[in-house]
Design a protein around this nucleic acid. Structure first.
Lengths: 261, 261
DNA sequence: CGAAGTTTTGAGGACCTTCAAAAGTTGTGG
DNA sequence: CCACAACTTTTGAAGGTCCTCAAAACTTCG
């Protein structure tokens, strides 16, 4: 029921890190019917143009979301770790505007969209939690835009790897200064808008400068604070702090007031 | 009541372009209490670190959303036109991770967050519409990441200006091939991750090649299809098509089926 | 052990930046 | 209505980051 390695449990933990659910809602969430799928490395789960019928909960492994441009270029627009609800986007949208695929071998849980819509409607706190999750995803997209648009190659890579470390520590997988991100330099490059060749050069430069060590996916950050200063990483955009407003203010209240965490 | 230039009416039109609301929901939406604010050019409406208490409906003018990096660089992560609900993000989030400001003189409607949360809860169709709007915003963020990460300067600028033309035509402001975007080249540059100087050069190159003409904010695109081909613009990511699932499927239905537009 | 994939290294070049200054535009006040 | 200040755009020149092409070195895995 509360197997901590179950994908639904992981997603619930992510949700409740922001705001706990009522016992009823929690039970309903964990009772969502799903289909478990085990995929190898580099497999597409959603393709551009698909009409999504289900939603993906990542249980194990790394997924990416990418878009391609006509001349063959590919941009990875997000990376996902266990516990992420990867395609809430598909709930409301008719046509997928991007691809979702595995970055490593992965196991995913697939929930039919009508079930999610129904639970979101039956339990407004769940509806709000899902919405909140998409808002945080949007905040991450914004930060990636900033990363690629206004930082140079070294800053970009450090920023990305600090974000991933932070998120990986949040789910209790590893310390943020020392974790494994089992992806290739080519994929790293596609995530930060550089070429694979230049990514390689930048990584060795970062190693030489002692800012960050990348060894085939093993990331270690000797001085977290210094690395944050180097690339301007500030985790507010990851919004670990919980939603601003709770059910208390939902009544015809006159004005908002902060909710204690 | 249905003054077509009222900000709420514009936002409602945007919502209903995707999926019509019931008469009740529509009336409740238009009855939202608001405060109207008239701002000059280059004024901040939301600052990084603010705790949002209200939500912004853009009635007139252009707004931008931006983030800055420590060395002074600024990245505009979105541009907003009348009818946009600019800061739904602020509904659930405790701390603003970005700035929202006017790009031109603008008039905005400000709705206290509790009212929006209440209406979203009382009318699930409105809750879903707001959520859907944030999903479309997220899709736009993704495309901007692709734009900056995987296209060169000329393609970036054309893509941005095709997107803006498309959106401006959607709200009935002007034809997409011939519209006014009253912003400076410096701000254009901050939106596409280039410098102002290079943006100027790229714009004259595009004019010389007959792809696109920028004359102090007056945009004209002689051959829309050719311009789309040039930069790989495909408006699916703007999701004008309406949400995938309607109330019909919200009952304990077994499987999803498409809803006719 | 060989094949396929990944990373490193090299060399030349393109795109874009930075610094700088001139030219053009807009708005305000005398 | 002109004058002037402030802002915006254009143009020039030099340089750096990053790209492309190419090949060698290293790693992984059947």
């Amino acid at each position: 029921m509360s197997d901590p390695t179950n994908g639904l449990t992981l997603a619930l933990a992510k949700i409740e890190r922001r705001r706990p659910l009522s016992a009823d809602a929690r039970a309903a969430f964990l009772a969502l019917p799903f289909r478990r799928r085990i995929s190898k490395k580099y497999v597409d789960l959603v393709r551009e143009g698909d009409r999504p019928t289900e939603c993906i909960f990542l249980e194990q492994g790394i997924l990416n979301r990418s878009k391609t441009v006509p001349d063959g270029g590919r941009q990875i627009v997000s990376l996902h770790i266990p516990g992420d609800m990867v395609d809430l986007h598909g709930i409301l949208v008719q046509i997928a505007d991007h691809r979702v695929g595995t970055e490593t071998a992965a196991t995913t849980l697939h929930v039919a969209i009508p079930h999610l819509l129904a639970i979101a409607e039956a339990y407004p706190e769940i509806g709000r939690a899902l919405w909140f999750d998409t808002l945080v995803d949007a905040a991450i997209y914004r930060e990636w835009t900033v990363n690629i648009g206004r930082r140079d190659g070294r800053e970009r890579l450090v920023h990305l790897l600090l974000e991933m470390g932070y998120r990986i520590e949040q789910i209790g997988l590893a310390p943020r200064t020392n974790y494994v991100l089992p992806i290739s330099q080519a994929d790293l490059a596609d995530a930060v808008g550089l070429t694979q060749v230049h990514t390689s050069r930048v990584l060795t430069a970062l190693r030489n400068d002692g800012i960050l060590d990348w060894d085939g996916g093993k990331v270690s950050i000797p001085d977290w604070a210094a690395a944050c200063g180097f690339c301007g990483f500030d985790p507010v955009y990851l919004h670990g702090e919980g939603p601003r407003h709770g059910p208390a203010e939902l009544s015809p209240a006159p004005m908002a007031s902060p909710v204690p965490a």
